Computed example of a mutant assay.
Amino acid sequence: MRTSSQLAVMALIVGTGAAWHIYGEQVGLPRPLALVGLEAAAPTAQQRGGPGGPVGVAVAPVRTGAVVDRTESVGTVRARNAVAITAKVSGIVTNIRFEEGQKVAAGDMLVDMEAAALRAELDQARAQYDDARSQAQRARQLQPGQSIAAQRLETLEAQARQAEGRVRATAARLEELRIAAPFPGRVGLRQVSVGALVQPGTVVTTLDDIARVRVEFSVPEVFLARVQVGSQVSARSAAFGDRRFTGTVAVIDTRIDTNTRTVRVISEFDNADEALKPGLFMTVELVLATRANALLIPEEAIDPLGDRSFVYAIRDNRAKRIEVRLGQRLRGEVEVVSGVEAGDVVVVRGIQRLRNDAPVRVTETMTRPTS
């Protein structure tokens, strides 16, 4: 009986001691010597990466690289020169000299119209001119002693000039019956047939010069100061998959659209294979600026806090928390405008366990973007 009582008392004392130890740990009371051996099995502060030892981290150096600022827009392809070929006078089409889609040179004849009546009129005008010119010439060559009234000579010369004017006018009207290409390019679909009666303004076909094309697009007015003639432009279309076309800014509009707050920009593209057709929809990227030696760090190194950004730079084996100002974001990397310098080393992994000026132990050094 006495033995059972002693065991119960010992159990009560041990239980009371354990409870006292937990409470005492919270309020700072001395620890019971009986439990010191148990604490030796717990991980140390250094092993936990706590304030008592260096934290293992992966780092990456701040590197320099090219960064290009771009803005994206949508645009439409336009021919450098484009015109609808129309008839200038009334007439009947007698000959069509082009094939649809044919490439033509400046001055090539495209369409002929009935000209028999005008040719007869031109022949008559030329005959009258020849007669009037001959009479005036004979009057001027009279022999000494022979006389002719000055007024008569003036009349003959005036008649000769009038006849010459009629010849020129009739020849011009005759030329209008022959429709020619005003510049080199490629003709479109034929809109008339042989035998058709056309009126002034009737469209015969179209002509586009697409050896070099224009792509028109708009950019927000906030970029106005950064858009320059000669700036590089790249464009792509769903019709050509991953193919990219490159050109340059040729013209910047002198006015800003007050409704959209954008400025219209015209770029020019070489189009030797004539892949780009007028009216084609394009996605355009305009280069605003290029920085050849921008500072770049992995995106994982950024420790955001609200609208501010920080990094941990390794200096003297300690992590220094530094505020940085960010620029352009790239694939897996971000540009740093200020806060660090080329050659600095920043923490990429292990940031969550760091505090300012914490001792660190480098476990891995990364030399490329991590994503």
Rank of each mutant, 00 (worst) to 15 (best):
A19C: 09
V89P: 01
R48L: 15
A42D: 03
I96G: 01
R80Q: 14
V36P: 02
G65N: 11
S90M: 12
L33H: 07
P51G: 14
R97A: 15
R70V: 11
A60H: 02
V36R: 15
T94K: 13
T44D: 09
F98E: 04
Y23L: 05
T76C: 05
H21K: 01
R48D: 07
V67P: 05
V104R: 03
P54K: 06
V104M: 06
I96D: 03
R80G: 04
Q102C: 12
G75V: 03
G75E: 02
H21E: 11
V89I: 07
V59C: 10
I96K: 07
K103C: 10
G52Q: 09
G50I: 10
Q47S: 10
T86H: 00
G65S: 06
T71K: 01
G24S: 12
Y23F: 04
T86A: 11
L35A: 05
G28M: 01
Q46R: 13
Q46F: 03
F98Y: 13
V74D: 09
V74I: 15
V89A: 13
E99A: 14
T64N: 13
G56S: 13
V59A: 10
T86Y: 00
A79Q: 01
S73L: 00
V36T: 13
G107S: 06
G24N: 06
A105F: 15
G49I: 07
G91R: 00
D69A: 14
V74A: 12
G28N: 00
T71E: 13
V55L: 10
G24I: 00
G65Y: 08
A60C: 01
P43G: 08
L35W: 06
A106P: 03
N81C: 02
G49D: 08
G56N: 11
D69V: 05
V74R: 12
A40R: 15
S73W: 02
R48W: 04
I22S: 01
T86M: 12
I85D: 07
Q47T: 09
T86D: 00
T94A: 09
I92R: 12
E99T: 15
A66I: 11
E99Y: 14
A18M: 07
G101M: 14
A79S: 15
A40V: 09
E99M: 14
G91H: 09
L29P: 04
A19H: 00
V36Q: 14
V93N: 01
T44Q: 07
K88E: 15
R78Y: 14
T76W: 09
V67Y: 04
V67S: 11
V36W: 03
P30K: 03
G17L: 13
V83H: 01
K103Y: 13
P51W: 08
R80V: 07
A40F: 06
V67A: 06
R63N: 06
A18T: 08
L38V: 11
V83L: 11
I96T: 02
L29E: 10
P30T: 02
Q46L: 05
G75H: 03
R80I: 03
V59N: 11
G107P: 01
A82C: 02
